[in-house]
Design a protein around this nucleic acid. Structure first.
Lengths: 350, 350
DNA sequence: TACCATTCATAGACCGGTCTACACGTGTGG
DNA sequence: CCACACGTGTAGACCGGTCTATGAATGGTA
């Protein structure tokens, strides 16, 4: 059996020949360039339609643009990232640009490979969602390609950035919990070993947690478990916090995913939520709203962030050279996972 | 302020000049081609390392390969897809190939645009996860590019396919529920209007549901809500099923996501799970395991499917012309969301 | 009528790779 | 000693677009 002949693609030359004009003319029509008569435009457009021609991105990229925005994310399974991408794709839908996504994984090495892959594929702009790489590396990339970094607080004149105001968001959670009467509040953060510098989101959330605790005279109650922002990290972190005596009456997890792990650990330990322990997360993942979870959390509008990212990137590609920095104001979403702590005799006795 | 000079990339000519050899020689070394002496290889490799050269994918694509696998998925937020991608990326990690993902959305038009975008970007192979497109369109794509379709039952000699044995999986769920003593079992499937033909997963799950019901003499109890496989679809579907009188004692949702919606609807209606209604899903999403959800569901190993997909695609790219079709055997995971129905006086009275 | 500016279309270089065809030793067998 | 095969390296065409430089045609003005 012979493999079916792989049909040759329609090229710009085919269109030119079919319309009886030059390649350059066709190219101009495609790019909506200056200096094309109406008659020529119609004629070429008809040829394009008749042959079903689509320009080949790889060939365009060599000289001009690839009309591609590359998105770097650690893993496509992270729900909050999905919202960002939704926003980006929305924004790009009206343009000629297409978003492609690539997984960077959770290690520097794999992330670097992914970033290189995007650059090698000649994307016109890169959206990096919470990248691990050092700032100097990001700046180096930004020198080659318009870059937008989402979710990191280290601004740079070399690239645009969009970031949630993690300070405000964390304050909202903490004031809520303390307002409910909690004093022993634990926090779950991201392990410093995983390359979390002072400018990273987890650090700011943790720092704010500690500051608010101190501001309310609760310095002695500070309890931080440094694991990770995954469900598994939340699970381990909660086990660590619950082993303390007396145990905390509330846990502020640095992310919704971690909060899910906290809920799992509490369930396993036979503790009720919010009866025994209140739980709060961060991100307002779609899942947090599910009645079986009903997680109090911080809402940062991922879709809007994604849209903004798209707009800023297109601007950069069009030639803007000044850096833009957006900070999104989050809001608290109170659900069933937080309540006032049960009055407990042990509390007064201490 | 002047924008920083955009540094010109190192090209193959730079490497050739630096090593004092021809472009062709460098190209041969890169591609590990025949006819290169050890001395030449060392020399070129040193130049590559010294200059930090990486070949540009777009340029390679024009003549040879782009070393890129394109993945089409409806939306990156779908948890089961994340597992597939994990498997694919794993498999590709050892090769030179990179996976890029693109969102096709839930409409034919947007999906077509996404597929075209992958083709225009000269990917070497395409993995389509549960595509909406008509079979003829898939075959047309497959004629141009090695293609693997995952999650559809319409085999074709033109492309490889990997599919979960939805018949077996659905039987497992139904036998489980019936074995527990349920008779009024409802099902939530995907709306036919959304282009769901007989070869699609939702249709097979629904068909199997009906067949098993009939086989057990429960033809009269068949109740199907055709909404969608999303959480919102599950929610609406459950409302529809629960409005029947008497209401079903169990609901088999076609996907875990839909099952989440069912749980939400039950919660809202003040019904307990599994006390009042048992719920089962399909896919064994990570979330289904969470103790707050504890969903009985069908496990299909997404990671293995992804790995297999990667392997098959690479084989195709290497030249295999015969079609390969894999069917993955699923297994039932029983959790807390299913139990025997409460004995109810209304049952006997009917 | 001659000259110039403007508009429109084209030829051909170019991007950075791959790949084919060929040149140049070098050893081998007749 | 010549013909030939073989292993190694190179020149240059080529992929499918973009873009620059140039030419042809047209209209307006002195």
């Amino acid at each position: 059996m012979v493999a079916p002949e792989r049909r040759r693609r329609v090229t710009i030359s085919d269109v030119a020949k079919h319309a009886g004009v030059s390649k350059a003319a066709v190219s101009k029509v495609i790019r909506n360039d200056y200096g094309v008569s109406d008659a020529m435009r119609d004629r070429v457009q008809r040829a394009i339609d008749e042959l079903g021609y689509r320009p080949q991105s790889a060939a365009r990229a060599l000289r001009g643009r690839a009309f591609t925005i590359g998105v770097l994310l650690q893993h496509i399974g992270i729900p909050f990232y999905a919202e960002i991408v939704t926003g980006l794709v929305d924004e790009l839908a009206e343009s000629e640009y297409q978003a492609i996504m690539i997984q960077g994984g959770t290690r520097d090495k794999t992330e670097k490979r992914a970033i290189d892959a995007l650059i090698d594929r000649q994307v016109d702009g890169i959206l990096m969602i919470a990248p691990l790489a050092a700032r100097t590396h990001l700046e180096q990339v930004a020198r080659e390609i318009p870059t937008l970094v989402l979710g990191r607080h280290d601004r740079s004149p070399a690239y645009d950035s969009i970031v949630d105001d993690d300070r405000t968001g964390s304050e909202l959670v903490m004031e809520h919990l303390i307002g409910l009467g909690h004093r022993r509040i634990g926090h779950i953060t991201f392990d410093k070993e995983h390359g979390q510098a002072a400018d990273r989101t987890p650090h700011i959330r943790a720092e704010t947690y500690e500051r608010v605790m101190r501001d309310h005279g609760l310095a002695g109650e500070i309890a931080v478990a440094a694991t990770s922002y995954t469900e598994e990290g939340g699970y381990r972190g909660a086990q660590e916090l619950l082993s303390r005596s007396p145990r905390p009456t509330a846990i502020f997890a640095g992310s919704d995913e971690a909060a899910l792990g906290v809920l799992a650990a509490l369930h396993e330990a036979g503790l009720s939520v919010p009866g025994d322990v209140s739980v709060a997360g961060y991100d307002n993942t779609k899942l947090a709203a599910h009645p079986n979870i009903a997680l109090t959390t911080v809402n940062q509008d991922g879709v809007v962030m994604g849209r903004t990212a798209g707009r800023l990137l297109l601007e950069r590609i069009e030639g803007r050279t000044s850096a833009a920095h957006f900070s999104v104001i989050p809001s608290l979403v109170v659900r069933g996972s937080t309540a006032s702590p049960r009055p407990c005799p042990a509390d007064t006795g201490t």
